[in-house]
Design a protein around this nucleic acid. Structure first.
Lengths: 112, 112
DNA sequence: AAAAATTACATTGACAGATAGAGTAATTTA
DNA sequence: TAAATTACTCTATCTGTCAATGTAATTTTT
């Protein structure tokens, strides 16, 4: 299980990625992450909704009410143009972060 | 420049790595990181000394006073057995983190 | 039909890591 | 001798994550 400090700062991009694929709601995202990682990683609900708030405040996503199919009413999220741009930026940052940490932690050459 | 939230949680291992190579002191480490990353990443002094405190408290490193050669007196750090074990653990965690984030952020298959 | 499980969203308070800012102290260079 | 450099330390603050708790509707089990 991955500790929260190690994942910190990457969650925004992870959530955005899933919302870019298609409009999604919170509970769905949390299940999807569990499935895709074969439960080696799970996002806590409190964290997830904190991420939504942050992303919506920054206008990277917008929300709308969905149908009641099972249980409580769903709140769907949709990516915005700025959200897409932010995601691209984060991907770039992640690639650079990998290079730097690999370099410092394992002495890997940049051309590996 | 890499944001602090993205690097968070990896700093302990980065510092340990440098101390494993040889005994080092704080200022040296901060300069070394700048050099190795060609200044794409720098560790803030307050952060560095906070890391030292944490690592020493957990007995991953021990300190001793060095010579005064330039400027103020140096405080050297040396890796311990537990420090080495912790570093190995962190390397493993980092590899797993990369796999998971790549998988979730870029839809990469685990066999890539 | 009542109880339990599942689906689904939300808030609060606490914690830990990173850092700005400020300070201390010694030596070297201009 | 003033300025720059080397070197370490402390305090206060910010931010992201998460445990705990609560609400609410629907579906499944008993």
């Amino acid at each position: 299980m991955i500790s929260s400090d190690i994942i910190r700062g990457h969650l925004d991009a992870i959530i955005l990625r899933l919302i870019i694929e298609k409009d999604r709601y919170g509970y769905e995202i949390s299940k999807e992450i569990g499935e895709r990682t074969k439960n080696t990683f799970e996002i806590k609900e409190a964290t997830l909704y904190a991420v939504f708030q942050r992303l919506e405040k920054n206008e990277y996503i917008v929300s709308y009410s969905g149908q009641i199919t099972h249980g409580r009413k769903r709140k769907y999220y949709k990516i915005t143009e700025q959200g897409r741009a932010f995601y691209d930026e984060k991907i770039g940052e992640w690639e650079e972060t990998k290079r730097i940490i690999d370099l410092l932690m394992e002495g890997k050459d940049e051309k590996n």
